[in-house]
Design a protein around this nucleic acid. Sequence first.
DNA 1: TCTCCTCGAGATCT
DNA 2: CTCGAGGAGA
Length: 324
Amino acid sequence: MSRGTATFAFGPEGFTYDKPNRQFKGKNIIAFPNEYVVIDLETTGLSSYWDFVIEIGALKIKNGEITDQFQQLIYPGMEIDEFIEQFTGITNEMLIGQPYLDDILPKLDDFIGENIILGHNTNFDINFLYDNYIRCLGKPFSNNFIDNMRLSRKLYPELPHHRLIDIIEKLNIEASTFHRALIDCNYTYKCFELMKDEISARYGSLEAFQALFKYQYVDLTKLKAENKDFDETHPLYNKVCVFTGKLEKYTREQAAQMVVNLGGLCENNVTKKTNFLILGNNDYCSAIKDGKSNKQKKAEAYKLKGQDIEIIPESVFYDMFENS
DNA sequence: TCTCCTCGAGATCT
DNA sequence: CTCGAGGAGA
């Protein structure tokens, strides 16, 4: 059985293969659709390249209620190993006589239609479907999809893990058996509906929640001192600091807060008012060719013009906090 | 301010 | 994969 479009460049010992280019894959979206299809696959392993689908489960949801379901064991054309038998409860015996994936995918395609997909770590299932759609149906799997894991990470950042089981426990959902496709679809559906309610209650609207996934612009000029009294003799008092590069010991925002707490000020870019430019590490930045960021070049230029500006490494910056 | 890029870290799916 | 941090340029 074909395993997709990947090709070997070397022998089995040191093989490489083309990174799958799933250019027509749907988008991972944050949405509350009236209608969606929950999908879960059981497979022979984690790799969409090496492994095979052995079970497909799907639920159709309309206005929060299950209206249809799809469940099918798949004969993978080979024996599955003991770990997967144990893990899923699907045995080799159960798979003998089951249809091939090639025969089932057209039916699944009909079932799903244009619907948005819901899953847990949905990329996993989507990637398996995408590659097998190309192979069996000659077309990509392009439906947009929602990922419960992504929602959970934003909604419950205090959780140490965001596996399906963790969300089930967090939401007090009754659960006993796991790792059968349709059963996990049910859990995923319940988790989503409950998280949806929580999001509405906590953020008021979907848009407000979506905004949390957008880039949050950090403006260091808006930092406020956490204390009131300043040592007016401190070298950073009333001085304007700017950072460039990645700091070793703190995030930029933490370091900036330390400055502000001493009565100093921070800016996001070097200006005529800047007194200190603190150099972090910019080795990793491919945009910087000669080791100096634009901020550093700008600061050097101001210094030549006589501005009261010092360019200091991170360690010297921390030294200024020692004797305070 | 905002958007786009790159990089590294961390996590989940069977 | 997604996210956060940072640089650059508009």
